[in-house]
Write a protein that binds this DNA or RNA. Structure first.
Lengths: 331, 331
DNA sequence: AGCCTTCAGTGAAACGTTTCATCACCGTGC
DNA sequence: GCACGGTGATGAAACGTTTCACTGAAGGCT
């Protein structure tokens, strides 16, 4: 593999000069610079980032660890983060924990060993050992889609309690009194908060609440939940899902069983992913500003790495209800 | 930041011993090993991967560069690749070119500078300058979802011509004779091949073909295509889309305009992503073994990096038609 | 007692950069 | 003619590991 010294020898200059050509082109005379550049081109030299980083002490890479890339919500978060990173000339590497603590641990360890500039993190558990270990590495990090006390780290989140309340209130207002909430893994803050929002609204009402737990956050789990709902009697007249993927699965189960939506079963999802509007029955959903979430988190992280005494922030966005056919009573 | 020599000093051993504890624990006496391990724990030492890599010459990371993470098809490809990599104890970092050559170039450069073990690549153009430059870096790579001659690199792909033919033949057989093909960017091999498959089938028939070009491969482009279709007269009776995202967008446009699917407009998609089955009208689609694609590509890459003279392969999978309501004539 | 082997641990070289103090050269102003 | 400042290039140190040839000590064998 061709290194800086091969270039130097071939161009008849010193190693330092080659380095200057690459990193501070203005300090080297035009003639020399061109000669060196053409040798670089000729030999196909690419600098070894690990050597550079070893010497420089810091890398030009951000890490992003999300819960589930299969969820378009997180893809949007990633897009937002990427945009912010590129604006600063940094690269970002995206990893997918798939809600598995072991993968989370393995990726966090990788980030630490790589001496990544900083990490954007949507953690699986509240405070796993993995996270605890990672904290000690001193790599700056910011939580995405997860609230945290500013004493630990900056965070960018959406108010999930409010979101849960939003969906529940909508179902109350459209006249439902047997309502199911299909939740994801209780280990996720998002899920617990959304459930709490739902409960806080419904507890003050006459409506009866059933909560389905122990499910994943994917379409398949939604189908399971759907068939469980179909088997209940009396059957709820409306279902609120912790996630659009779940909602799409439930919807599929309903359509498959010939249950009319929303007449016999109203459905509300969460995230307002692009596919929600294109579903069999377009889904009412609680929208989160996914892209903005990612962008803001990246900006916070960059601010923190640029200036260690930048103060920590806990940004909270407010979700918004998007009403579509799946809860719209037709005449 | 705490380094190996801090650990060594504190544990009262030499640097080499600490390194041995970390990398070849069996060669060091139990007592010493435990002492060192507890100091590592106490100080929160994490090894600097760039130093290690600089010395070792190779990293334990694979790069994966996909066309569009917003397309669940590629998310599945990534999952398959991840699985294979983890089975070998390697980490994989996923990057998203978003079909932009500049991002592709930037990520390829990053992979080369990082001295990644190898790269899985679904390239934007046929042979961009970026790819050309990357080739010279000597980093092994394998094409995913893209055929290539074995003289250049191994590749794992799905027969897109066959897939295009599959969809077109299905539309012929269900009695359509004004058929539209909604294509994505012509720069993508996949798009050109699928179109070719369509043409090869339809040219031998009485059916009239309209091709819509110059679109992206996302839902929004699909909506555009849909409204263009709506404005045509005579209007085609069936549309085949290069991609499920496009198909979902077209479907949305049809539903929005009150055009019945499949009676007034049959729709066929491509990829059979999970959302295709959950759509307003479940989509007929050409299924590709996405996960398997990723897994196989990673395995090929690993074989190649393990043994430089492993022979190159061009694996081609065969797509399969999944028929659903969007083309099923109802009575 | 002397020799050989094995086991633990040491110290230094090497990896490919960046950076910085230093040097050589040249033109300018006095 | 001389000091001076500026420009452009140099050479060596340093970054944190891994590896490898080596040393010492302890034990086994003749």
């Amino acid at each position: 593999m061709v290194g800086i010294k091969d270039v130097a020898k071939r161009a008849g200059v010193s190693i330092g000069t080659v380095s200057n050509v690459v990193n501070r082109p203005h300090v080297v005379a035009t003639a020399t610079r061109n000669r060196v550049l053409s040798v670089i081109e000729e030999l196909g030299y690419v600098r070894d980032e690990s050597a550079r980083q070893l010497r420089a002490g810091s890398s030009r890479i951000l890490g992003l660890l999300v819960l589930d890339l299969g969820n378009p919500f997180f893809v949007d978060v990633a897009r937002g983060a990427e945009q912010a990173a590129h604006a600063e000339g940094l690269n970002i590497i995206t990893c997918n924990s798939g809600q598995r603590s072991d993968l989370e641990a393995s990726y966090l360890a990788m980030f630490a060993e790589q001496r990544v500039r900083g990490v954007l993190l949507s953690p699986v558990g509240a405070s796993s050992e993995a996270l605890h270990a990672f904290r000690r590495s001193g790599t700056p990090y910011v939580f995405v889609d997860r609230k945290a006390s500013t004493s630990e780290a900056s965070s960018v989140a959406v108010d999930d309690v409010a979101g849960g309340a939003l969906g529940a209130r909508h179902l109350l207002e459209t006249g439902h009194d047997r309502i199911a909430f299909v939740n994801g893994p209780a280990i996720l803050d998002q899920c617990r908060d959304r459930e709490q929002g739902v409960r806080s609204v419904l507890s003050g009402s006459a409506a009866e609440l059933t909560v389905l737990e122990g499910l994943g956050l994917d379409v398949e789990s939604g189908r399971d939940a759907g068939s469980r709902l179909l088997g209940m009697s009396p059957r709820p007249t409306a279902v609120f899902c912790a996630n659009d993927l779940l909602a799409l699965g439930v919807l599929q189960a309903m359509v498959g069983a010939g249950v009319r939506v929303p007449e016999e079963m109203a459905i509300v999802g969460y995230d307002d992913i692009e596919f929600a509007g294109a579903a069999a029955v377009p889904l009412t959903s609680v929208r989160q500003p996914a892209r903005r979430l990612g962008r803001t988190a990246a900006e916070l992280l960059l601010a923190e790495t640029a200036d260690t005494k930048a103060e920590r922030q806990a940004v909270v966005f407010t979700p918004e209800l998007v009403v579509r056919e799946s809860t719209r009573v037709r005449r």
